[in-house]
Amino acid sequence: MPTPIGKTFFIDPGRCIGCQACVQACSECDTHKGQSMIQLDFIDQLNSPQTVPVVCMHCTSPTCAEVCPADAIKVTDDGVVQTARKPRCIACNNCVLACPFGVPKMHTKMNLMMKCDMCYDRTSVDLKPMCASVCPSQALFYGTWAELEELRPRSRPVNSFQFGGQLIQTRVNMMIPSASLVEHIDVTAAMFEPTVGHDIFADILLDNINQEEPL
């Protein structure tokens, strides 16, 4: 059952409010009942409330599948990188350590790697993935390009990521400013970057205070 043509997953960590709705909804998915596959992290809890939800980016050349000694990770014809096939996974941890986005989880007791499979039970019947269906800020968005363009005129999607000398293309898109000229997101260049946040006083309160009240 292939996923519908034209529907795509878009991720925008900058919009995440850390509400955990995605975490809870993810564990409702039939393919991994009771276990959430969303990786939701505080980036720098001391300095910022910024959170990042990470789902599987469904790479076109998935490193996790390539480094799997048991050939347990399969890609569907429509490009969805599936979670480890249960009869094959030998719980070696290679995929967990090799994924450039830090996505897979290891359930040692079950001897099984588990990861986001874009809710294949839902997306293959034209439903949204659980996380995207509940995300209030739409940091996780699933829909058509036309819908996205209408909703996010200031953003544009990018699906190419640089890790050192390796460029990885993904099926899931990351939102960047439409004015930005970059063709791919250089992840390793941000290795020692500080957290980026909003200066609330400068941006919102002070602007409003200085603004003249309309008569």
Binding site: F101, I176, S180, A189
Partner: peptide, 15 residues
């Protein structure tokens, strides 16, 4: 892996 996810968000934040 957690630092990879952090870098993923920080790279977007830079842009």
């Amino acid at each position: 892996p957690p630092c990879r996810r952090a870098m993923f968000a920080l790279a977007q934040g830079r842009l």
